[in-house]
Protein backbone atom coordinates (compact mmCIF):
# COMPACT_ATOMS: atom_id res chain seq x y z
CA UNK A 1 0.00 0.00 0.00
CA UNK A 2 1.19 3.49 -0.79
CA UNK A 3 2.27 5.34 2.32
CA UNK A 4 -0.31 7.79 3.58
CA UNK A 5 -2.88 6.64 1.03
CA UNK A 6 -6.40 6.46 2.29
CA UNK A 7 -8.27 3.19 2.46
CA UNK A 8 -11.44 2.83 0.44
CA UNK A 9 -12.48 3.78 -3.11
CA UNK A 10 -11.13 7.08 -4.40
CA UNK A 11 -12.11 8.77 -7.66
CA UNK A 12 -9.45 11.43 -8.10
CA UNK A 13 -10.45 14.28 -10.37
CA UNK A 14 -12.27 11.81 -12.55
CA UNK A 15 -13.67 13.50 -15.64
CA UNK A 16 -15.41 11.89 -18.59
CA UNK A 17 -15.88 13.59 -21.94
CA UNK A 18 -17.87 12.56 -24.98
CA UNK A 19 -16.61 13.88 -28.32
CA UNK A 20 -14.71 16.57 -26.44
CA UNK A 21 -17.72 17.76 -24.43
CA UNK A 22 -17.53 17.30 -20.65
CA UNK A 23 -20.08 14.84 -19.30
CA UNK A 24 -19.28 13.97 -15.70
CA UNK A 25 -16.61 15.24 -13.32
CA UNK A 26 -16.18 13.88 -9.82
CA UNK A 27 -13.67 13.91 -6.95
CA UNK A 28 -14.64 11.68 -4.07
CA UNK A 29 -13.32 9.21 -1.51
CA UNK A 30 -15.63 6.52 -0.16
CA UNK A 31 -14.33 5.02 3.07
CA UNK A 32 -14.64 1.29 3.86
CA UNK A 33 -18.14 0.54 5.17
CA UNK A 34 -19.41 3.87 3.85
CA UNK A 35 -22.06 4.12 1.11
CA UNK A 36 -21.98 7.19 -1.15
CA UNK A 37 -24.76 8.03 -3.58
CA UNK A 38 -24.56 9.83 -6.92
CA UNK A 39 -27.97 11.16 -7.87
CA UNK A 40 -29.32 12.62 -11.05
CA UNK A 41 -31.95 12.18 -13.74
CA UNK A 42 -31.52 9.52 -16.40
CA UNK A 43 -29.19 10.42 -19.27
CA UNK A 44 -26.90 12.48 -17.04
CA UNK A 45 -24.08 9.95 -17.28
CA UNK A 46 -24.45 7.97 -14.06
CA UNK A 47 -23.98 4.59 -15.70
CA UNK A 48 -21.09 5.96 -17.74
CA UNK A 49 -19.43 7.00 -14.50
CA UNK A 50 -19.68 3.44 -13.15
CA UNK A 51 -18.37 2.07 -16.47
CA UNK A 52 -15.30 4.26 -15.97
CA UNK A 53 -14.81 2.83 -12.48
CA UNK A 54 -15.18 -0.79 -13.63
CA UNK A 55 -13.05 -0.16 -16.73
CA UNK A 56 -15.75 -0.89 -19.31
CA UNK A 57 -16.07 2.61 -20.71
CA UNK A 58 -17.21 2.65 -24.33
CA UNK A 59 -14.39 3.83 -26.63
CA UNK A 60 -16.60 6.75 -27.69
CA UNK A 61 -15.88 8.29 -24.27
CA UNK A 62 -12.58 9.57 -22.93
CA UNK A 63 -11.61 9.90 -19.29
CA UNK A 64 -8.97 11.64 -17.21
CA UNK A 65 -8.17 11.27 -13.52
CA UNK A 66 -7.44 8.13 -11.49
CA UNK A 67 -9.38 5.39 -9.74
CA UNK A 68 -7.67 4.17 -6.56
CA UNK A 69 -8.70 1.25 -4.43
CA UNK A 70 -7.11 1.17 -0.94
CA UNK A 71 -4.44 3.46 -2.30
CA UNK A 72 -3.60 1.32 -5.33
CA UNK A 73 -4.12 2.90 -8.75
CA UNK A 74 -6.37 0.50 -10.69
CA UNK A 75 -7.05 2.87 -13.59
CA UNK A 76 -4.92 0.86 -16.02
CA UNK A 77 -6.10 -2.54 -14.87
CA UNK A 78 -8.60 -4.66 -16.81
CA UNK A 79 -12.03 -5.07 -15.24
CA UNK A 80 -11.40 -8.58 -13.96
CA UNK A 81 -8.27 -7.51 -12.05
CA UNK A 82 -9.82 -4.50 -10.29
CA UNK A 83 -11.82 -6.44 -7.69
CA UNK A 84 -14.68 -3.97 -7.93
CA UNK A 85 -18.07 -5.70 -7.77
CA UNK A 86 -21.17 -4.32 -9.46
CA UNK A 87 -24.91 -4.98 -9.27
CA UNK A 88 -27.26 -3.85 -12.04
CA UNK A 89 -31.00 -3.35 -11.98
CA UNK A 90 -31.26 -6.71 -13.74
CA UNK A 91 -29.72 -9.56 -11.78
CA UNK A 92 -27.88 -10.90 -14.85
CA UNK A 93 -27.69 -14.40 -13.42
CA UNK A 94 -26.11 -16.61 -16.08
CA UNK A 95 -29.10 -18.48 -17.52
CA UNK A 96 -27.08 -21.58 -18.47
CA UNK A 97 -25.77 -22.19 -14.93
CA UNK A 98 -27.70 -23.35 -11.88
CA UNK A 99 -28.00 -21.08 -8.84
CA UNK A 100 -25.04 -22.90 -7.29
CA UNK A 101 -23.15 -22.67 -10.59
CA UNK A 102 -23.65 -18.90 -10.63
CA UNK A 103 -22.25 -18.60 -7.13
CA UNK A 104 -19.33 -20.91 -7.92
CA UNK A 105 -18.57 -18.75 -10.97
CA UNK A 106 -18.00 -15.84 -8.61
CA UNK A 107 -15.95 -17.83 -6.11
CA UNK A 108 -12.20 -17.29 -6.76
CA UNK A 109 -10.12 -20.23 -7.98
CA UNK A 110 -7.93 -20.13 -4.86
CA UNK A 111 -10.75 -21.83 -2.97
CA UNK A 112 -9.72 -25.35 -3.98
CA UNK A 113 -11.48 -28.67 -3.91
CA UNK A 114 -15.02 -29.57 -4.88
CA UNK A 115 -16.18 -30.03 -1.30
CA UNK A 116 -14.70 -26.76 -0.09
CA UNK A 117 -16.21 -24.81 -2.96
CA UNK A 118 -19.58 -26.43 -2.52
CA UNK A 119 -19.49 -25.65 1.21
CA UNK A 120 -18.76 -21.97 0.50
CA UNK A 121 -21.63 -21.82 -1.98
CA UNK A 122 -24.02 -23.50 0.44
CA UNK A 123 -22.95 -21.19 3.27
CA UNK A 124 -23.55 -18.15 1.07
CA UNK A 125 -27.04 -19.38 0.18
CA UNK A 126 -27.77 -19.98 3.83
CA UNK A 127 -26.73 -16.42 4.65
CA UNK A 128 -29.59 -15.09 2.51
CA UNK A 129 -32.17 -17.70 3.44
CA UNK A 130 -31.87 -19.79 0.28
CA UNK A 131 -30.54 -23.05 1.68
CA UNK A 132 -30.98 -25.94 -0.70
CA UNK A 133 -31.42 -23.72 -3.77
CA UNK A 134 -28.04 -24.63 -5.33
CA UNK A 135 -29.51 -26.97 -7.93
CA UNK A 136 -32.28 -24.61 -9.05
CA UNK A 137 -32.63 -23.01 -12.48
CA UNK A 138 -32.25 -19.22 -11.92
CA UNK A 139 -35.16 -18.61 -14.29
CA UNK A 140 -37.50 -20.26 -11.76
CA UNK A 141 -36.63 -17.88 -8.89
CA UNK A 142 -38.70 -14.90 -7.76
CA UNK A 143 -37.37 -11.38 -8.22
CA UNK A 144 -36.25 -11.09 -4.60
CA UNK A 145 -34.54 -14.48 -4.70
CA UNK A 146 -32.67 -13.55 -7.87
CA UNK A 147 -31.51 -10.28 -6.30
CA UNK A 148 -30.15 -12.16 -3.28
CA UNK A 149 -28.33 -14.70 -5.47
CA UNK A 150 -26.78 -11.86 -7.51
CA UNK A 151 -25.63 -10.18 -4.29
CA UNK A 152 -24.03 -13.34 -2.90
CA UNK A 153 -22.40 -14.17 -6.26
CA UNK A 154 -20.78 -10.76 -6.17
CA UNK A 155 -19.71 -11.00 -2.51
CA UNK A 156 -18.22 -14.49 -3.05
CA UNK A 157 -15.87 -12.99 -5.66
CA UNK A 158 -14.20 -11.16 -2.73
CA UNK A 159 -14.48 -7.60 -4.07
CA UNK A 160 -12.89 -4.67 -2.26
CA UNK A 161 -15.54 -2.18 -3.39
CA UNK A 162 -19.14 -2.36 -4.49
CA UNK A 163 -20.95 -0.41 -7.20
CA UNK A 164 -24.75 -0.29 -7.49
CA UNK A 165 -26.24 0.77 -10.83
CA UNK A 166 -29.92 1.51 -10.07
CA UNK A 167 -29.74 -1.91 -8.42
CA UNK A 168 -33.12 -1.72 -6.66
CA UNK A 169 -35.26 0.06 -9.24
CA UNK A 170 -36.87 -3.12 -10.60
CA UNK A 171 -38.06 -4.35 -7.21
CA UNK A 172 -41.49 -3.50 -5.81
CA UNK A 173 -41.71 -1.28 -2.69
CA UNK A 174 -41.79 -3.93 0.06
CA UNK A 175 -39.09 -6.09 -1.46
CA UNK A 176 -37.01 -3.09 -2.32
CA UNK A 177 -36.61 -2.02 1.27
CA UNK A 178 -35.70 -5.53 2.37
CA UNK A 179 -33.08 -6.16 -0.35
CA UNK A 180 -31.63 -2.66 0.08
CA UNK A 181 -31.11 -3.19 3.77
CA UNK A 182 -29.53 -6.58 3.11
CA UNK A 183 -27.06 -5.14 0.60
CA UNK A 184 -25.99 -2.18 2.72
CA UNK A 185 -25.76 -4.28 5.90
CA UNK A 186 -23.58 -6.90 4.27
CA UNK A 187 -21.36 -4.28 2.64
CA UNK A 188 -20.91 -2.56 5.99
CA UNK A 189 -20.15 -5.84 7.74
CA UNK A 190 -17.54 -6.73 5.09
CA UNK A 191 -16.08 -3.20 5.29
CA UNK A 192 -16.72 -2.47 1.59
CA UNK A 193 -16.87 1.06 0.23
CA UNK A 194 -20.14 1.37 -1.75
CA UNK A 195 -20.84 3.78 -4.58
CA UNK A 196 -24.39 3.76 -5.88
CA UNK A 197 -26.00 5.70 -8.68
CA UNK A 198 -29.75 6.16 -8.59
CA UNK A 199 -32.54 8.58 -9.41
CA UNK A 200 -34.52 7.56 -6.30
CA UNK A 201 -34.20 9.60 -3.07
CA UNK A 202 -35.17 6.66 -0.88
CA UNK A 203 -32.11 4.74 -2.15
CA UNK A 204 -29.92 7.64 -1.06
CA UNK A 205 -31.61 7.77 2.33
CA UNK A 206 -31.10 4.03 2.83
CA UNK A 207 -27.41 4.35 2.02
CA UNK A 208 -27.06 6.82 4.88
CA UNK A 209 -23.90 8.36 3.46
CA UNK A 210 -22.70 11.33 1.40
CA UNK A 211 -24.88 12.31 -1.55
CA UNK A 212 -23.67 13.98 -4.74
CA UNK A 213 -26.07 15.51 -7.23
CA UNK A 214 -25.29 15.44 -10.95
CA UNK A 215 -27.00 17.97 -13.18
CA UNK A 216 -27.57 17.72 -16.88
Amino acid sequence: MVEGARRGLALERLAITHAGRPLVALDIVVAPGEAATVMGPSGVGKSTLLAAVTGTLDPAFAMTGRVRLDGVDVTGLPTEARRIGILFQDELLFPHLSVGGNLAFGLPAHVRGRAARRARVEAALERVGLSGYAGRDPATLSGGQKARVALMRMLLSEPRALLLDEAFSRLDAALRDQIRRLVFDMARRDGLPVLQVTHDRSDAAAANGPVLELHP
Binding site: E80, R82, F88, G106, R153
Partner: peptide
Protein backbone atom coordinates in the same frame (compact mmCIF):
# COMPACT_ATOMS: atom_id res chain seq x y z
CA UNK B 1 -23.09 -6.93 -23.06
CA UNK B 2 -23.87 -6.42 -19.37
CA UNK B 3 -23.35 -10.17 -18.89
CA UNK B 4 -19.78 -9.49 -19.99
CA UNK B 5 -19.39 -6.68 -17.44
CA UNK B 6 -20.98 -8.79 -14.70
CA UNK B 7 -18.68 -11.75 -15.40
CA UNK B 8 -15.57 -9.57 -15.68
CA UNK B 9 -16.43 -7.78 -12.41
CA UNK B 10 -16.59 -11.25 -10.81
CA UNK B 11 -12.97 -11.71 -11.82
CA UNK B 12 -13.33 -13.67 -15.08
CA UNK B 13 -10.91 -12.74 -17.87
CA UNK B 14 -12.07 -12.29 -21.47
Amino acid sequence: GRFDVAARALGAGP
